[in-house]
Design a protein around this nucleic acid. Structure first.
Lengths: 341, 341
DNA sequence: ATCGCTTTCTGAACCGGTTCAGTAGACATA
DNA sequence: TATGTCTACTGAACCGGTTCAGAAAGCGAT
């Protein structure tokens, strides 16, 4: 039925080994023989059997991604689908596949990596959502799985990182708001256990102090719409009530904007709002959202490239992607002239 | 280093074959020997080598999912991440993995399936986004890959389907709006080349005629925010201007709602709006969206179960999941008393 | 005691590749 | 001519399981 290397060997009148050398471009056969073998293989329609290759070469020809997130909230995150699509664009060119695992809890996450390792399902993994003091680094080291991380974790990591600076975008948002006259600029951040939750808060903090302003109110939320709403409610109730809020992602910003509007506030006249991600929806909100594009597609593509070159034995260094630029839309405007509380 | 079946055989003083029988619960060894072998295997910490198993049993122990969608829009679809999470909940219990492919074009989609087949990466696939006259059915038949489809395609398909009726939810939306006094109810649908684009439009049409109303204006959009906006603009410009619009998904509904608001219309006082999906964000919009939950998590879980039992040789019949019920929120209200155009 | 049947187990082939040790022949060198 | 070196290739082992044909042992029936 299917053509094996044996059939090719027989048809070409050489040994199995010679065929293997010829097909893999390795030395050990003359040019004449090589060509003949290749021609015969083509004529017979030979296709390498991935399973056999996997067994003898001890490689999986696949990379893994473990997504740790509450499944019910997973759908709201615009990052992963596009990120995965980016990974794919690289993988298809190299005949690699993507094995995806979704984990609902921290235990399940660790188990996910352990299973990928135990079954040798993948040759390497990409780590997203890096946490401060991320336990996965030690785990993967002990499992001997090569990895690439998104952004460089603070703890020492032996894995190359693909970095996209998010602080410039947040700083630009602060400067933009300051230029509009805002001085009370709050921040609704992601969990500070994530390095991108932290870095965005620090970027906001630093940009504020650079502008000679007090950092003002910060609420740690969880990147969800529900969290964004609750945080917004708290900020708007507070004595330090801000005239502008910088959110760590679009989803929280959208929920916050809707909530503010439901209170009768006008965005941006009464409250300016910025997000992060630049989801498709951001453009189509009322008002459209000022935000920072994250370019998960590019990130995925480069992360996969980096991982593959690491697997290829290359000495992989950190890669720095261009920092995304603030996209100004109608959700930000001049500071209200009258006190708004 | 790693313990193989040979090591176990040697340690237990039996042959390789006996160990294989014992470990797989097959007849051919006495109970005493079986227990001894299992004990030795446990003591030695033997783990089956998936690659070797794959080669000799000609199975991949993985299922595939090919998502055909523009990568830039993929992030906006709340369906897939949750659906995948649902698939995973089933797979982890059976030591199966999920191989995910993202395809940007129709060609890439077909190539995706062909590659999964050529490399025997998977033992079966799940087909989502079924199209009218879906070419994938013939493709998978010719590739001899078992499959499960989401909903039953109209063309004859040899594959079991996991069905979730979306017509009841749309019909309920129509009835709900009719009970609020609406008579001019438009529909912004998905591409009619998709069976769920079609079935929702037909459900709207049928429910309208059942209520003794003319179906009214229908616009075929593309499930994107941009498409939802354009369709809404067209409906609101038309002579048949509706007082309520039923959208085929939340994303288009959200864009439509924002657009209507940007025109100065109030939702629901001037225009009632319903969506489909019940994304997290739907609850947190202003006003919160009346919509129909899709339960992709359940769908994924059951689809994977169905596929695994099919792979296990079971005679698989179609499964019918409960039809989701309309969730009424504040984006729908009484018909405006005055003509609104 | 012989026959036939079943249970239990072994040894080897097999899945389809990779890789290594070894050999035959061509060729250059002394 | 004997020696050494290189190239081109073969045959077999190997990766770690599954599976099948066949052998040995146990057992009851004749």
């Amino acid at each position: 039925m299917t053509v094996t290397i044996n059939d090719v060997a027989q048809a070409a009148g050489v040994s199995k080994g010679a065929v293997s050398y010829a097909l893999n471009g390795q030395p050990g056969v003359s040019d004449d023989t090589r060509e003949r073998i290749l021609r015969v293989a083509r004529e017979l329609g030979w296709k390498p059997n991935l399973r056999a290759k996997s067994l003898s070469s001890a490689k999986a020809f696949a990379v893994g991604l473990v997504i740790a997130r509450d499944p019910r909230l997973l759908g709201t995150d615009p990052f992963f689908p596009a990120f995965i699509a980016g990974i794919e664009t690289t993988l298809v060119e190299h005949e690699y596949a993507l094995v995806l695992t979704v984990a609902a809890s921290a235990d399940a996450e660790e188990l996910g990596y352990r299973k990928l390792a135990a079954d040798s399902r993948v040759d390497g993994v990409i780590l997203t959502d890096m946490r401060v003091d991320d336990s996965r680094i030690a785990l993967l080291k002990s499992l001997r799985i090569p990895a690439v991380t998104l952004n460089r974790p603070e703890t020492s990591s032996p894995f190359p990182a693909v970095c996209m600076d998010d602080t410039a975008g947040i700083a630009a948002a602060v400067e933009h708001l300051v230029s509009l006259g805002h001085t009370k600029i709050g921040h609704v951040g992601g969990p500070q256990s994530y390095i991108h939750g932290r870095s965005r808060r620090l970027a906001w903090q630093n940009a504020m102090s650079k502008a000679g302003l007090e950092a003002g109110a910060f609420i740690e939320a969880d990147f969800t719409a529900a969290g964004g709403l609750a945080a917004t409610a708290e900020l708007l109730r507070s004595a330090q009530r801000p005239t502008a809020i910088i959110y760590a992602n679009d989803l929280m910003a959208t929920a916050g904007q809707s909530y503010a509007q439901s209170l009768g506030l006008t965005v941006p006249d009464d409250l300016s709002i910025t997000g992060y991600d630049d989801t498709e929806l951001a453009t189509y909100l009322n008002p459209p959202l000022t935000t920072v594009p994250a370019d998960p597609l590019l990130w995925g593509r480069v992360a996969a490239q980096q991982l593959l070159s690491l697997l290829g034995g290359a000495h992989a260094e950190d890669v720095y992607l261009p920092s995304p630029k603030l996209v100004v839309r109608a959700s930000t405007g001049p500071v209200p002239s009258l006190p708004n509380n």
